[in-house]
């Protein structure tokens, strides 16, 4: 159990940066009336951020070159998506996804 001065500064500094990124928008929105265009812009935030976060795990970046697919993640995504379509249950998507990935890893499919 030890902590260096650098580590302490990193924790406090990064903690402050993160909490401000989260909290300041709440204070702004609470005190200001937002223009219509901003509300329209923000209505697309959920679908765009979630899509981008999915892409983050489905693509593999190569600096200076086109990205490739993360084959294992893409394969496991298929049964997970099917589970979502069939059950509309978040829990089922997660459970089926984990099981699919365990099977892929067991047979060493997709690297």
């Amino acid at each position: 159990m030890s902590i260096s001065l650098t580590e302490l500064w990193v924790i406090l500094g990064c903690g402050a940066i993160t909490v401000l990124s989260r909290v300041l928008p709440f204070a702004f929105v609470k005190s200001l009336n937002m223009p219509d265009w901003l509300i329209s812009f923000l209505s697309f935030v959920p679908i765009t951020i979630m899509t981008a976060l999915c892409c983050e795990s489905l693509f593999v970046a190569h600096a200076g070159h086109l990205a490739t697919l993360n084959v294992a993640n893409c394969l496991a995504a298929i049964p997970a998506t099917l589970a979502g379509i069939l059950t509309k249950s978040l829990l089922m998507v997660v459970v089926v996804g984990i099981m699919a990935m365990a099977v892929l890893r067991y047979f060493a499919i997709g690297g």
Partner: peptide, 28 residues
Amino acid sequence: PTRLGFDFALTAMFIGLVYLQLISDKHL
């Protein structure tokens, strides 16, 4: 810890959330 597929839980969760968003956001 990745052997049991638990690292995929996060990706699966976002897939599920994005799908549910897609089918249920009636405004867009």
